[in-house]
Design a protein around this nucleic acid. Structure first.
Lengths: 122, 122
DNA sequence: GATACTGTATTATCAAACTAATACACTGGA
DNA sequence: TCCAGTGTATTAGTTTGATAATACAGTATC
């Protein structure tokens, strides 16, 4: 797993995003056990407490479940994963629309910008 | 001017965005004098230093110019404003594409999401 | 039972960022 | 000259984040 943090935003928040993305894209499959706090912390070159902080926050979204001392597991309920994914997508889309609107750009125009930029980079 | 701040991000950064948007959308027209630090600070219910911090950071983009003790003015150079606007749009678009890509969404799919969400809200 | 591995909790410390209070320097105009 | 209004500088206080060291409780395995 590639850990890359930019300053400006708390590391633990960026860790949350990394792991959430890993779950939503199947890097951590449903029902699978994820590495231990200490293992992940060592991998990310981060203090175990920081990693723990991120994981505990993430559990509020129900994507991760702690099984006592057995470790942490990704939820087996694919509906939960889909719901989280849809919610994230919806939030992201609304956020984009809002930011574009602040600059006087309509959703239609924004969509065109995405298409053009996507082509150019491709 | 409507000042609305959310926590989690520094107030001065949010002020920067507010004012930059005001310049790029013509609320503060090119060449016009903007309110004084203390005036803006009182309006935003913020410490004058916080406002000053935001304004000084913003000057690095050349959108604002300090005229000694006469006050601050929006640049008269519309090319600078256009360039800043285009840069902001480009950054925003790339940021969106990146975030969607992290969820396995192509720019084309993202564009569709924007269109659908735009319609639904309209 | 002993060991090693889980997650968790507590406390302390350090650094950085943000906000705030105050004082300073300059200019325009009455 | 004096006053009011600019932007600016300095300093301090508060908060937040990250790290660190330790300790605790439970489980699987040998």
């Amino acid at each position: 797993m590639v850990w890359k943090f930019s300053d400006g935003r708390p590391v633990y928040v960026q860790i949350m995003e990394h792991i959430q993305t890993a779950v939503l894209t199947g890097i951590f499959p449903p029902g699978s056990k994820i590495p231990s706090v200490r293992e992940l912390a060592a991998d990310a070159k981060v203090n175990p407490n920081t990693m723990q902080h991120a994981l505990q926050e993430l559990e509020q979204s129900m994507l991760l479940i702690t099984q006592g001392t057995l470790g942490r597991f990704v939820t087996q309920d694919s509906a939960v994963i889909d719901a989280a994914r849809n919610k994230l997508l919806h939030n992201l889309t609304q956020e984009c629309i809002k930011k574009y609107a602040a600059l006087g750009i309509s959703p239609e125009q924004a969509a065109n910008l995405l298409l053009e930029c996507g082509k150019r980079e491709a």
